[in-house]
Design a protein around this nucleic acid. Structure first.
Lengths: 161, 161
DNA sequence: CGGGAATGGTGGCATATGCCACTACTTCGT
DNA sequence: ACGAAGTAGTGGCATATGCCACCATTCCCG
């Protein structure tokens, strides 16, 4: 039974690995009542300290509307709160509530374990290497460079006339 | 404007990179009318040649029911067909239809370009390295090894008494 | 200052994924 | 051969993500 086997498509390989790892992290965080995605989202919100949705979306490399959708279950459960920014009434500041903090800390303990388990299983060096490669792909400069090598027509952006 | 910044969580880093790369590949394949995920799915089906849903799910490292859902739009559009396996009427063989083949070939040309573009932008060596790391995570042995290092209670499986 | 352009989100719709309960077949043990 | 188990999918529900159309504000220019 072959099973997975290597993949010539970087995107497909990335997705497959994401599904696998997502499964593992989800299982580990389940006792805290958070999906791995939600844990990551809370962590990012805390890191940015009351970011606007746009800033948060950029940091997550996520579509703004997708972020809005993803935040809904967390807001419904009272783990995050959205407030209108007085300086710009169009903007919403995203904040982790007290309940969200508590839940996060609970999940954090589990996360530390599963993360350590991952590094132990995969190897600390390879883990760091992988993280570096992934961060490079996610960072804005990569997308910019990628766009720069567009085959042809995509030249509508920048450097026009 | 910080922007992304490194991530201590391997899972979050993986997801972020997946969102970014998915965006890039989706854009590139859009003219063919296929999402990058659908392209990858068709490619896998062709590779396995009329696999059962279970085999396909295993190869994709995807939940069986998730595979069923994902297949629906493709089946609705007549790109894939599900037929009952005569040897085991519970099982369904998944096949790429003629229309699916045509669509795949169209997308394949675009994929080759975007894939080459990725390797050029990211570097051939780093691309190969990344693919190797991702494939290792997706492959069954990794999950098995990971489960083997479970913190405690997960010892319900195997080696019980 | 008034109105059009730009910016920040929301809501609707569609795909991607996963879990669980349930149905349809197959296998097996007696 | 019969019924308990096991296996392969389906359908329902929920989250994850994205695109597009639209609404609310803010900006900017004449």
């Amino acid at each position: 039974m072959a099973g997975t086997g290597p993949h010539p498509c970087s995107n497909a390989a990335l997705r497959r690995a994401t599904r696998r790892l997502g499964q593992l992290y989800d299982d580990a965080l389940a006792p805290a009542g958070l999906k791995a995605t939600q844990f990551g989202l809370l962590a990012q919100i805390r890191l940015l300290d009351q970011p606007s949705m746009g800033d948060l979306a950029a940091a997550m490399v996520m579509d703004l509307s997708a972020l809005g959708h993803t935040l809904r279950p967390l807001a419904r459960d009272g783990l995050v709160a959205l407030t209108v920014d007085p300086r710009d009434r169009r903007s919403r500041r995203v904040a982790v509530t007290a309940a969200g903090e508590a839940r996060f800390r609970e999940a954090f303990r589990l996360w530390r374990e599963v993360q350590a388990r991952f590094e132990r299983t995969f190897g600390a060096e390879k883990s760091a290497l992988l993280r570096g490669l992934l961060d490079e792909i996610a960072a804005p400069p990569f997308a910019a460079a990628f766009a720069g090598t567009a085959p042809a027509e995509a030249a509508e952006d920048a450097s026009s006339s």
